[in-house]
Design a protein around this nucleic acid. Sequence first.
DNA 1: AGAGTGGGCCTTTTT
DNA 2: GGCCCACTCT
Length: 677
Amino acid sequence: MGAEALSAGGPSGATRIDYAAELNEQQLAAVTSPGGGALVIAGAGSGKTRTLTYRVAWLLENGLHPWNILLLTFTNKAAREMLARVTELLGPDADGIWGGTFHSIGNRILRRHAGLIGFRPGFSILDREDQSDLLKSVAADAGAPVRDKRFPKPDVLAELFSLSANTGRPLPEIVHERFGYFEDILDPIAAVHAAYDRRKQAANVMDFDDLLLRTNQLLASHADVAEHYRDQFRHVLVDEYQDTNLVQSELVHLLGSKHGNIMVVGDDAQSIYSWRGANFENILNFPKRHTGAQTYRIETNYRSVPGILDVANAAIRGNVRQFEKNLRAWRKEGARPVLAELPTNNDQAAYVVSQILELNRQGIEFREMAVLYRAHFHSMEIQLELTRRGIPFEVTSGLRFFEQAHVKDVAAFLKFAVNPSDETAFRRMVRLLPGVGEKTADSLWSAVRAGSASPAPFGEVLLRAKPPSRAEKIWSQLAATLDEIAPDRKPIAPDRAIEAVMEAVYEDYMRAEFANYENRREDLRTLAGYARQFGSTEDFLAQVALLTNVDGTGSRADTETDRVVLSSVHQAKGLEWRAVFVVWLSEGMFPSSRSVEKPDALEEERRLFYVAVTRGRDHLHLCYPQIRLGGGYGEPFQRRSRFLAELPAHLLEKPGADEKPRAASPAKKTGSRDWWY
DNA sequence: AGAGTGGGCCTTTTT
DNA sequence: GGCCCACTCT
């Protein structure tokens, strides 16, 4: 199946890429797979992205039209990188591939056919914060006991509903399994759930989960639409398959089943997102689901020195449920990983920083080094120490560009102008006005709601509501602004709309509200510049919702680029550094105390450790403190992580003589455990 | 509505 | 040790 598309030879004639020379044998086998189901198990650092991009190039060179390829990724970053690399290989011949995140592809399909499932094409997208805002209002209206301390907060509700959506399992099951303490209030929770769905439909808004669920619903209920896309996508390729959830694998199946050419690439050993619904079974069961599927393994690691890979292979051995595999080192020699046991967390920080300085003296740039940890608060002392010693660093956390309040505020005006049923946007917008809080926003919305669906000018519609006297003047200004950015309800270009909103109301607001007004104004200027490339405000808003990345905006880009990276292991996936420090390898930290009693969760922690270890190219330091100082809660005495205990001792070295940890108490390991508790 | 205070809680995160 | 939330007071 599908092979007929590939055998004819490309219309453009001569092959330009020498696949056999540029790929190793295992990569080549996957790249030139005849079609049908294909599972590519790609170990860490084995050239997974390379394989996938060459596969796309190979398909195109063999005559497939770009339009017939669907390339699904998990993140925007991966999508961009992949498409850029294909373009690098083939140039404009690659234009027209359907590539992107699951959500963006869902969005693209739904924009065309939303009408068939009770939405209108101009629907807006709720991000997590919008979702919480709406849920708060829905819960109150649905008569849920929100004043009861035990009733879940909007964020928790969102988590619950999302987990149910992404795992395809009914709410009661999710509650029973993960939120047992809510079981006796399941009824009101379910009522909120149902009301939330109705409210979204009425407001013509979708949350992130809807972009997947509704796409599946559309394809399952409208055979003609499904057939159209099934025809089109002769080859479906999926990256990071181990992180897909049930809904996503369903979508892959719905779109790829006609031609059956589905290639999924992933590494079961790096599946670290089950807690948010990823289904590790997808990759384990792929061969069963797609009978006749070929399995390809790519196991040569080009990244790390052999010593690091020995540790990685030993680390993952403790897991039961996995495809058997063994990373083979391509590199021949290098330093052995170091096990650094430090007396306290402060010593740990001092050790890491002194090692960073030492490696820097040896010629490794700061940006080539990373400190990885299980949870963000583990980085505290390291940050202090780096600051103290004047070493530049960056922390990969915090708000993303499009999640910042001022960006979302301005977007709310545009959202409402495009979709006047969007009550979340309306609420956000009016709450910027003086004297308007939650209650007033409610009453304003009920006054405006009916008219907002009519084609009347906003000036007229908003007149029906009575704002607090303090806000009367600005109220008419708001109406005028809305009519300015959507005269006759037709939105103008997004960049001009942003400028209009800033000029009319938002600049004044920012100046009064934010100490860093200048920076924020600069952000919005950047946003307007970014918006210029979009044909319509609707497209722009969909992108803003889906693309939560900061990069590419860079208005306030730090000039210092040589910085040590501090990152959670989750966020480090897919990246690599010459030197990697893994800190807080103690029981209860890594693995997290919440996971130690659940075997599945513990296996995931172990995979996480595997991910951490395999980020390092030349140097790896595994660190843990024996005593935790200064921490407010929990046990001060730390025990070495079981993940370290599982490693054969000969794989690890003691810290080098020149940078010995300060206190030298030769720690007793076993036998003295009772002493700790 | 908004500022101020005390109590409880404390992974990981993309879209 | 610090943040977020709920509650109180103005």
